[in-house]
Amino acid sequence: MELENKREAKVISKNIDVFYGDKQALFGIDLEIYKNEVTALIGPSGCGKSTFLRCINRMNDVIDICKITGEIEIDNFNIYKPDVDVVRLREKVGMVFQKPNPFPKSIYDNIAYGPSIHGIAKDKNEMDQIVETSLQKAALWNEVKDRLHEPGTGLSGGQQQRLCIARAISINPEIILMDEPCSALDPIATAKIEELIDSLKTSFTIVIVTHSMSQAARVSQRTGFFHLGKLIEMGETEKIFKNPNNTMTQDYITGRFG
């Protein structure tokens, strides 16, 4: 109970509706995401969990036909206000995608890209430092430190995904969104990423979308269950998996549908 008091809401979603053309994808999502915790979003495919994730850093803006209503507050600031600068928002909210998507550049340039466009590093030394710490935080430094100038696309799938995580943390965001980061990886690489997520939560607030319930159980403190564009239930991971309030959640957890 002591823990509960220390918790601080980082992201608050208020009545978010999302439409693709005339098809509604999300219905009135209300939820809170706490600081320095891992929050998992689960649900069957097509339930809207990824769509919601992309609302948090406004990646849905890229899609022309996508319309969003409602509010998302980060640190009590509504990011859907008309004059919000998405570039600034995304500097604060990083993202890792389902399929590793390193740029067709060297490992070094992949990491340096974010800091260089935001002008974070003053000189080459500082940039080297940022690249090194980012790769270290992503637990990739030891594997790639001798070949920083080789193309990032030459790495294995798991390494590529850690490279993408390193790229996301290179600009020191406050929140990292992960969209099924392990779905394209083998079990060993998955284990490494999960370990990494656990260590990252001390510095970042992490939201992870996953289709694997065991993964959600392993890495997250809180879990939200989405179904057909609605948030069915949200709570402590332990509670959701052991004793959910909603029967639908119960059915999904026990594998009766999904």
Binding site: E91, G94, N101, Y113, R167
Partner: peptide, 23 residues
């Protein structure tokens, strides 16, 4: 996905084009 990666670190559209898409 390459564009998404670039937007996700807070690049503007023209930065994404010049530094990721064009190369």
């Amino acid at each position: 996905s390459l564009r998404d990666g670039s937007y996700a670190v807070g690049a503007t559209k023209s930065e994404t084009i010049k530094k990721v898409v064009f190369p």
